[in-house]
Design a protein around this nucleic acid. Structure first.
Length: 551
RNA sequence: UGCCUGAUUGUGUAACGGUAGCACGACUGUUUUUGGUGCAGUUUGUCUUGGUUCGAAUCCAGGUCAGGCAACCA
């Protein structure tokens, strides 16, 4: 009965640390830079960091790594907070690296005083050149030998605004021959006159990532600082800073970032898609952003489940998009309200139905007996899907065709008698008779049919727009595709189609999750109004028939 | 040509020297008033060469392949 869930390597480390009494409780952090919207890759990190704290009885800080004012904005801060909350997580403290600017500055002064940092007047190009290459050691320059008092004065001057942007930088004095490029006297501070979204114009020097992140972790007493693989080479520097400053020893651990088929996962590329108009916005439902997925109809539960299933490890990975789809379907199947919507309509006339109209009842969710039923009006003129009628049915076709019978969902069994065509040969109308004894729930007809169709009463039908999405890119693995990633954008990723919906849909709440029978899961778009109903297709249903047909 | 990671079925992920398991996908069958769901089942794998060991996916050595490492970005 006891289902031992195996721990991932980080959980392993934490449980060992805890068992060894290294910590009383753990503190993690989620540290985004507010320079873009969060995406599904961040969700993995969020679920990891918050999940770690949750399962080991610790807590998590939300920290904005806002050390580069040129790229950051309050808009991003707000969206990030909203997304983390929506995913269902709570942070104990909301922190900003910029809150530590004073502290960071004094850390830098300490390093100068210890002879471990110096002001360099070289240009960016010169510094790059002097750094050498991975196989060739770097060479120093004269500035490296500046005296402590001179460095102190120069650094104070940098802070005071005495120098132009780029004129000087503060560098750590470590080892120009280190096999780790990050240890070859990395930059600690640069001069940058940019308006900061929090500190305004108070500063003209800003710390680099490597002189802010580890220090911020330490200031907050983060026990386990979890980041992605590309920061492995930074770890030596992370530890160096903590050791030289003699501050709280946070530790960094790295896991492999998420990659997914048919999409991109870098803020830079996502920004490009937005700015160049390939998508409508950051929250375009085709985007892998949290806000896009939310607008598309993904649930927080399904995203958390997804993050749980993909696991945490150190090897590069590319997750099938179908796993994400599986996760939403699984959740939505349990909670979505069923409704009938016809997208490509053809008129079905019930020739022997002369009651005008009849109110029928249909279950809201067969998976959930408590979901109740709703009223669905039936009449002698219905809309059905064009593809649910075939003039010359093939052998395994279980739908309507001359002489064939089907069940109309929650209504009656009908038998096709005839049909009409226009001059171009298109079917315009299908005629059928219904069996009054076959009413749903009280069927005494004894007839058994193989197919069940969804339908909408023509005179009660409500026009709606359905946004049907397809994958954003046409190749599976963008990282191994040649050339510009934008060359692979799928031009048909959005198809807006008109449809007829049953009237119940008008009164449903904006946040309701729907399954349009036999079509897929849908969620009302933020621009939808009572007079102009718009639904986004979160994901289609599995379609065994479509698969069968391909054979 | 340096340093750092990593390599288990189509894709992820377990197995902590002792039966290679799980999920998704794919494929069967079955149930079904959604060709959905459910249920039952099938399917393919330890990068390579040596070594240690009664026994190796796991430990050791060499190789191969993949990714990362040089930004006044994070």
């Amino acid at each position: 009965m006891s289902e031992e869930k195996s721990l991932n390597f980080i959980e392993e480390i934490i449980s060992q640390d805890l068992a060894a009494g290294k910590y009383k409780s753990i503190l993690t952090r989620f540290p985004p830079e507010p320079n873009g919207y969060l995406h599904i890759g961040h969700a993995k990190s969020i679920c990891l960091n918050f999940g770690l704290a949750k399962s080991f009885g610790g807590s998590t800080n939300l920290r904005f790594d806002d050390t580069n004012p040129a790229k950051e904005d309050i808009e991003y801060v707000d969206s990030i907070k909203e997304d983390v909350k929506w995913l269902g997580f709570e942070w104990v403290k909301e922190c900003y690296a910029s809150d530590y600017f004073d502290q960071l500055y004094s850390f830098a002064v300490q390093l100068i005083e210890k002879g471990l940092a110096y002001v360099d007047d070289s240009s960016a190009e010169e510094i790059a050149q002097q750094k050498g290459t991975p196989t060739v050691p770097g060479t120093g320059n004269a500035f490296r030998n500046r005296s402590i008092p001179e460095n102190l004065e120069l650094f104070a001057g940098m802070k005071a605004g005495k120098y132009a942007d780029g004129e000087k930088v503060l560098r750590a004095k470590i080892d120009l021959a280190s096999p780790n490029m990050h240890m070859r006297d990395p930059l600690l501070y640069r001069i940058k006159r940019a308006h900061h979204h929090r500190t305004g114009d108070a500063w003209c020097i800003y710390p680099m990532y490597d002189f802010a992140h580890g220090q911020s972790d330490s200031i907050e007493n983060i026990t386990h600082s979890v980041c992605t693989l590309e920061f492995i080479p930074h770890r030596a520097l992370y530890d160096w800073g903590i050791e030289q400053l003699g501050i709280y020893p946070s530790h960094q651990y790295e896991f492999a970032r998420l990659n997914m088929t048919y999409t991109v996962m870098s803020k830079r590329k996502l920004l490009q898609l937005v700015e160049e108009g390939h998508v409508e916005s950051w929250d375009d439902p085709r985007m892998p952003t949290i806000s896009g997925m939310r607008r598309r109809g993904y649930t927080p539960e399904s995203i958390r489940d997804f993050c749980d299933r993909i696991g945490i490890a150190k090897r590069e990975n590319i997750i099938d998009f179908s796993l994400l789809e599986f996760c939403v379907r699984e959740h939505l199947n349990k909670v979505a309200q069923r409704r009938m919507v016809v997208t490509n309509p053809i008129k079905l006339v019930i020739t022997n139905f002369d009651k005008g109209e009849e109110i029928l009842h249909s279950e809201n969710n067969p998976e959930d007996p408590n979901a109740g039923t709703r009223d669905v009006p039936f009449s002698n003129e219905l809309w059905i899907e064009r593809e649910d009628f075939m003039e010359e049915p093939t052998k395994k076709y279980f739908r309507l065709g001359p002489g064939l019978s089907v069940r109309l969902k929650s209504a009656y069994i009908v038998t096709c008698e005839s049909f009409e065509k226009d001059e171009a040969g298109n079917i315009t109308k299908v005629f059928a008779s219904y069996n009054p004894d076959s009413k749903s729930g009280q069927d005494t007809s004894g007839i058994h049919v193989k197919g069940t169709l969804h339908w909408v009463s023509a005179k009660h039908a409500v026009p709606v727009t359905l946004n049907e999405y397809d994958r954003l890119f046409s190749v599976e693995d963008l990282s191994s595709a040649d050339g510009d990633f934008k060359d692979y954008i799928n031009p048909n990723s959005l198809k807006a189609v008109k449809a007829f919906a049953e009237p119940a849909l008008v009164n449903d709440t904006l946040d309701a999750r729907f399954q349009f029978l036999r079509k897929g899961y849908f969620y009302q778009d933020k621009n939808s109004t009572k007079d102009n109903l718009i639904f986004n297709r979160t994901v289609g249903l599995k379609d065994a028939w479509a698969k069968e047909q391909k054979k």
